[in-house]
């Protein structure tokens, strides 16, 4: 067996895969949150729908998105492989469970938290990604008056829409787009879905408070100077700011 293959089939190597895919997914969260902040713009989705088109049609981003899907699958698959391996390492369980006496709850239940997140990802993609890619969202036309700068938005009938288009005519700039924004508004009218999104973001918080710093431990990174920064990022950025930012979106549309 080659050195590389040997390394990745060891318990340490499998954790390395978890670590690298996990950290990649963390960087995605930053981009995803920043991009989706455009949902808070009160412009009937003008900025957000243009952004949605850009993200699905720009080559390099498409490549990254395939890496992303692969990371989600590999992260979940390796979690399953490692969990089965770990269960095998203790075939007879203890009668007495220590609970929180020697380890935090989230560190012991990453699998449960991860499963909630996997179900969330499936739901989330079915709601938006699938609908956007399969023409199950409404269409919209934005008209910007070049002189006055005034923007108006009109829903487009499906028969008239061909593809995303930007053009100017008679001093008016037209943008025709798939209205993912409308789909967001529509989806978050459902209180059960909103509650599930908020719950999933709580799970994300607990998952990342443990996961982010542990990824560095698995990499062997425990530099005394930088570890405080890693811990800070893990708790306050990935455990607080990012989940709250995402949870704010369904709540914003529900109460709007």
């Amino acid at each position: 067996m080659s050195s590389f293959k040997e390394a990745f089939s060891s318990t340490l190597g499998k954790k390395l895969v978890m670590s690298l895919t996990g950290l990649f997914l963390c960087t995605f969260l930053i981009v995803h949150l920043i991009g989706n902040l455009q949902l808070f713009k009160n412009d009937e989705g003008f900025a957000f729908n243009q952004y949605a088109y850009f993200m699905t049609h720009f080559g390099p981003i498409k490549i990254v998105s395939y890496l992303l899907y692969a990371s989600i699958i590999i992260h979940a698959l390796y979690a399953l492989i490692l969990t089965l391996h770990n269960k095998k390492a203790r075939p007879i369980p203890y009668d007495q469970k220590p609970g929180n006496k020697n380890a935090a709850w989230n560190s012991r239940n990453m699998g449960i938290l991860g499963t909630v997140l996997l179900v969330f990802i499936a739901t989330h993609m079915a709601n938006f990604w699938w609908k956007f890619h399969n023409d199950q969202v409404p269409y919209i036309q934005y008209e910007t008056n070049i002189e006055t700068g005034q923007i108006s938005a009109i829903e487009m009938p499906a028969e008239e829409f061909t593809d995303y288009k930007e053009f100017s005519q008679d001093g008016v700039e037209y943008v025709q787009a798939r209205d993912l924004y409308k789909q967001v508004e529509f989806a978050f009218e459902n209180p059960i879905l909103v509650a599930f999104y908020v719950l999933a973001m709580v799970a994300l918080s607990f998952h990342l408070i443990h996961g982010f710093k542990s990824a560095f431990q698995s990499l062997g990174f425990d530099n005394k100077k930088w570890i405080p920064l890693v811990k800070f990022l893990g708790i306050y950025v990935f455990g607080v700011i990012i989940p709250i930012g995402f949870a704010a979106m369904p709540l914003y549309f529900f109460f709007k």
Partner: peptide, 11 residues
């Protein structure tokens, strides 16, 4: 030897 992997629970 069949020991498990580390999940950094710190137990």
């Amino acid at each position: 030897e069949g020991f498990g992997a580390c999940t950094v629970t710190k137990a």
